[in-house]
């Protein structure tokens, strides 16, 4: 398996970042292996990390009193999990659970936040990338609100 330093330059999330910046980010990162069912974070926890899935699958979950546990999204190889580390008040808004044996790169968001505060260029670059992740999730949420695959609005005029 490639080292984190070798892995980051090829990942779309880090595309375009120069070598010193990548080295700085890699310095805040650790490889983690997870057994199926293990949690990366829980809703309400301090959001001090974000993750890139290297293998396996991570389920993003929410809990409701009536609905129970609902998986809202899954992250597979290459997907980025977590943005709350960059958005005040830095609190996780969902649970993230390894749906199967998985490997992730965990980035120390608290450490990176400190560096972003002193390096506006780094902060802007990371904010742009995290915003893309957020935008993707927002669009997906909007699409799901439409209940595309046939909610109560379906009629005999469009039964397929």
């Amino acid at each position: 398996m490639r080292t984190i330093e070798q892995y980051l330059p090829d990942h779309p999330f880090f595309e375009g970042l120069d070598a010193p910046t990548l080295a700085l980010i890699a310095g805040c990162a650790t490889n983690i292996s997870l057994a199926a069912g293990e949690y990366l974070c829980h809703e309400g926890d301090a959001a001090d990390h974000f993750f890139v899935v290297r293998r396996g699958r991570v389920a993003i979950e929410v809990h409701g009193p009536a609905a129970g546990t609902l998986v809202l999204d899954t992250a597979d190889e290459g997907d980025v999990v977590g943005w709350s580390w960059l958005v005040p008040p830095y609190v996780s808004t969902f649970d993230a659970r390894a749906a199967e044996a998985s490997g992730v790169v965990a980035f120390d968001g608290a450490c990176l936040r400190g560096k972003c505060d002193t390096d506006a260029h780094l902060g802007y670059e990371l904010m742009k990338r995290v915003t893309q992740v957020m935008n993707g999730r927002l669009v997906a949420a909007q699409m799901r609100l439409l209940d595309l695959y046939g909610g109560p609005g379906a009629t005999d005029a469009s039964p397929r």
Binding site: A59, E61, G68, T69, L70, T74
Partner: peptide, 9 residues
């Protein structure tokens, strides 16, 4: 998906 669903969401 529910917690038991192992596939993609």
């Amino acid at each position: 998906g529910r917690e038991s669903w192992q596939g993609r969401v």
